[in-house]
Simulated scan of single mutants.
Amino acid sequence: MKHGLNKQDPSSPGIERRFMIVLFTVLALIVVMLLTSINTGIVTLTPVEVLKTLLGQGTDRQELVLFQFRLPRIVIAMLVGAGLAVSGGVLQGITRNPLAEPAILGINAGAGLMVTLFVAFFPVASGMPIYALPLLALTGGGVTAAIIFGLSYSRSEGLLTTRMLLVGIGVAAAISAVMLLLTLGMHPDKYQFVVSWLAGSIWGTNWTFVLALLPWLLILLPYVYSKSQTLNILSLGEQMATGLGASVTREQIMLLAAAVGLAASSVSVSGGIGFVGLVAPHLARQLVGPRHQLQLPVAACIGALLVLTADMLARWILQPTELATGVVVAIIGAPYFLYLLAKTRV
Rank of each mutant, 00 (worst) to 15 (best):
L84F: 05
T230N: 09
L338H: 05
A173C: 03
V260R: 09
F67H: 12
A146G: 09
M33P: 05
Q319I: 14
E251P: 03
G4V: 10
V195K: 12
Q57S: 13
Y131F: 15
A324I: 08
A310W: 05
F69Q: 13
E238N: 14
T95C: 04
M164T: 10
A173G: 14
L231K: 02
P98N: 02
Q286P: 03
D9P: 03
L180A: 11
N97T: 10
L308Y: 12
V75D: 00
V26R: 12
F122N: 15
G271F: 10
W197Q: 08
L64Q: 12
R345H: 09
L231Q: 06
T162S: 11
T40H: 01
P47W: 07
I148H: 06
S235V: 01
A334S: 13
L221T: 01
A259I: 02
Y223T: 05
V143W: 10
P290Y: 02
F337R: 00
V65I: 15
R291L: 02
L64C: 03
L45G: 01
P335F: 09
I42L: 08
I175R: 05
Y131R: 13
S11M: 02
S152V: 13
L23H: 13
P13K: 12
V276A: 05
V298K: 09
G277K: 13
G110T: 13
T116F: 14
L35R: 07
L160P: 03
I219E: 01
P290M: 02
R155H: 15
V178S: 07
H292P: 02
G4W: 01
A257R: 04
I104P: 05
Q319D: 00
L255N: 06
L341C: 11
L180W: 11
V80N: 03
S126E: 12
S270W: 06
T230W: 00
I332T: 12
L45Q: 05
G106K: 08
L244H: 12
P10W: 08
M240K: 01
I175E: 03
V22T: 15
V32Q: 10
V248W: 06
P335E: 01
I94C: 07
E101K: 01
A300S: 12
I273P: 01
Q286Y: 09
A120E: 04
Q295P: 01
V119R: 07
T44L: 02
A212G: 11
Y153K: 09
G140F: 14
L287R: 11
P98G: 04
E251C: 02
V328G: 08
C301I: 06
L84D: 04
L5I: 11
M1A: 10
L5D: 06
W216S: 14
I130F: 03
A257D: 03
V48Y: 04
H3L: 10
I148M: 01
W203R: 00
Q229E: 11
T162Y: 08
M240V: 15
L287G: 08
R73E: 00
Q68V: 06
I175Q: 03
V86H: 05
L306G: 09
P320V: 11
R345W: 09
L64D: 06
